[in-house]
């Protein structure tokens, strides 16, 4: 037993050491964000809209565990567009800021309720954790399709939960493979300048130090668009985004 503790301790020491090294290294590569007080910060506001025809709302077929998930089809959240082409759940963020206001908060938890992820788009600061809950009566699994953060896929018992930490900034798709219609997105942010658009496609980034930044709008079905935005001290800059639906390859799958 003592030997085990010793060898485990040794492993832990190496692990800690490497973590320090790794964090040290990644700082070089990523130029980590530095939070502090921002006096007389500016604001960036705007809307995100869809270019082109507004598609009909699509639905998701519920073909499993209908006692819990319901018998009806669920509305798809992959592309939520209002009548005037405003996009909900688009994420607007500054991609190249290394110093600014303090970074705290984020979405505390993603829940699975009625076989739907709530919220559909969540956000946490880099290096922090999020609770992943299951409020349903059936087992769900949580599968993260991340590229930078260590990916996981774990079963979560009815009314159970797990917690996960995300080391690198990344847009992570999270699905439940048991119920294939269930999808959500977790945005791991390097800085606090991000916003998720409301039903009118509106967003607001506050407390931005004066300067010129690259601002990105991203939506899960449409990809992203960026623009350079200059913010004056205490001023308000406007940046509207238009995202376009990419043409799919012509070939469609045949249903057998």
């Amino acid at each position: 037993m003592g030997k085990l503790i010793k060898s485990y301790g040794c492993f832990l020491a190496v692990a800690m050491f490497s973590l320090v090294l790794l964090v040290g290294n990644s700082r070089d590569v990523l130029a980590a964000y530095e939070g502090g007080d921002v006096s007389n910060g500016g604001t960036i506001t705007g809307t995100v809209k869809l270019v082109g025809d507004v598609p009909d709302a699509s639905t998701l077929k519920v073909d499993k565990d209908q006692a819990t998930c319901g018998h009806d089809d669920l509305p798809s959240e992959a592309l939520m567009v209002s009548g005037d082409s405003s996009l909900q759940n688009a994420v607007v963020s500054i991609t190249n800021i290394s110093k600014g206001k303090k970074f705290a908060g984020g979405t505390p938890a993603i829940d699975q309720k009625g076989c739907v992820f709530r919220p559909h788009v969540a956000m946490i600061p880099q290096g922090s954790s999020i609770e992943l809950l299951n409020s349903d009566d059936v087992m769900h699994n949580l599968h993260s399709w991340s590229m930078k953060n260590t990916a996981f896929n774990e079963g979560v018992a009815a009314h159970g939960n797990i917690s996960k930490t995300f080391e690198f900034p990344e847009t992570v798709k999270v699905t439940c493979d048991v119920h294939k219609w269930m999808t959500s997105w977790l945005i791991v942010q390097a800085n606090p300048y991000y916003a998720i658009t409301d039903a009118n496609g509106k967003y607001k980034l506050e407390g931005v130090p004066a300067g010129t930044y690259t601002v990105q709008a991203w939506q899960e079905s449409l990809g992203n668009a960026t623009q350079e935005v200059t913010v004056a001290a205490g001023g308000e800059a406007k940046a509207d985004f238009e995202l376009e639906k990419k043409e799919k390859k012509r070939r469609e799958r045949k249903k057998h």
Partner: peptide
């Protein structure tokens, strides 16, 4: 990987120059 102190399944960032 003992050198990195990480377990199978973990994703690690490795600088190209290393």
């Amino acid at each position: 990987n003992e050198g990195l102190g990480r377990k199978a399944g973990d994703t690690v960032q490795i600088a190209n120059e290393e």
